[in-house]
Amino acid sequence: MTAEPAGGGRPSTKGKHRMMRRRGLLGSGLALAAPPLASAQGFPSRPIRLVVTFPPGGTTDILARQLQPKMSELFGQPVVVENRSGASGAIGTVEIARSAPDGHTFGMVISTVISSTLISRQPYDALRDLTPIQLLARVADILVVPMSSPIRTVSDLVEHAKRNPGLTYGSPGIGTSVHIAGAMFALAAGVEMTHVPYRGGGPALTDLVSGHLNLMFGNASSTLPFVRDGQLRAIAVTSAQRAPYLPNVPTVAESGLPGVVIDEWYAFVGPAGIPRPIVERLNAGLNSIVTQPAERARLLDMGAEVVAGSADDFARFMREEVDKIGRVVRAADIRME
């Protein structure tokens, strides 16, 4: 698109002709529609770079690599996974945000892409600097306690916490959904609990099994094996509905605390400014992959419930998350230590 003259200077005769032509195109609607449509028809024209904001071996990386072969097949170009980890996903997110907005670079992020910006200053704005492409899946947090604990229900936990202020709950770090879930629970129940951040969910779960922590709102993907092996007792899940993989475990909401609904989510985003037709092409392609019965079942076995939906749905969800998580962060005075 032709640039406008700078400052307040008068455009040249040639510049006037360009401006008149631009106005004519805008009036006909072709200036906005034609360039993105043309780029979408030829997309993708080269290999796609899929930036994963966490290191190899984690849930985010596993999900990305699980989908990679089908993405390459569907889009007709190699999809190359590139791990850019560090700073709770911020390094990879900045890499995505600074990429060319042509759809050939996008990435997988998790819910900390929102919560991190609410807790500390980040080098990106999740709503301004990123293009929502697809909300892939939600992973509930499971409220778990050691098998030796007398706590068996949410009511038991609330009563126990009121009699014993300062019950400890672990998390993979400040601002994770596991941390936010614990803070949200404490606020809703009117109890005081002590957050113990770890460098990863694995060490926190290990300490919980051994009784060094009182409870945890563990990410389902990492916590389910401990529940299935009988090492931890599942009390409730933080999702809006009961989890298909734990159908007999109630939600926190149905157990008397309706405001406690939170998931860790995984999603695809690109840099701001990707043409709408390309966003829709990516969204439709990704949806067609993850909604296949076999793929949906494989993700569910990991504790991830497929969401899919449109890019607009995801954009609306991100705005709602900023409001919801922001209220918890402010009320609980959560800050980076």
Rank of each mutant, 00 (worst) to 15 (best):
Phe185Pro: 00
His212Met: 10
Gly182Arg: 03
Leu205Arg: 07
Ala137Cys: 15
Val191Ile: 11
Pro165Cys: 09
Ala204Cys: 12
Ile180Val: 14
Pro203Asn: 06
Glu159Ile: 15
Ala140Cys: 12
Gly170Leu: 02
Asn248Leu: 12
Asp141Met: 14
Val237Tyr: 11
Ile133Lys: 09
Asp229Asn: 08
Ala188Arg: 07
Gln134Trp: 01
His179Gln: 12
Ile174Ala: 03
Ala236Phe: 00
Gly173Glu: 04
Val249Ser: 03
Val139Pro: 03
Gly173Lys: 00
Glu192Pro: 04
Arg138Thr: 03
Ser177Cys: 06
Ile174Val: 15
Met216His: 13
Gly170His: 05
Pro247Gln: 14
Arg152His: 11
Met147Leu: 11
Arg152Gln: 12
Val209Leu: 05
Asp229Met: 07
Thr168Asp: 11
Ala234Asp: 00
Glu192Cys: 08
Thr194Ser: 09
Gly230Thr: 11
Ala188Ser: 13
Phe217Met: 06
Ile180Trp: 06
Thr153Ser: 15
Phe185Asn: 00
Leu213His: 03
Val237Asn: 05
Gly190Pro: 06
Ser210Phe: 13
Gly230Gln: 12
Glu159Lys: 15
Arg138His: 14
Phe217Trp: 12
Ala204Lys: 09
Thr223Cys: 04
Gly182Pro: 07
Ala188Ile: 10
Gly175Arg: 10
Leu136Val: 13
Val249Met: 05
Gly218Gln: 08
Ser177Val: 01
Lys162Pro: 10
Ile133His: 02
Ala234Phe: 00
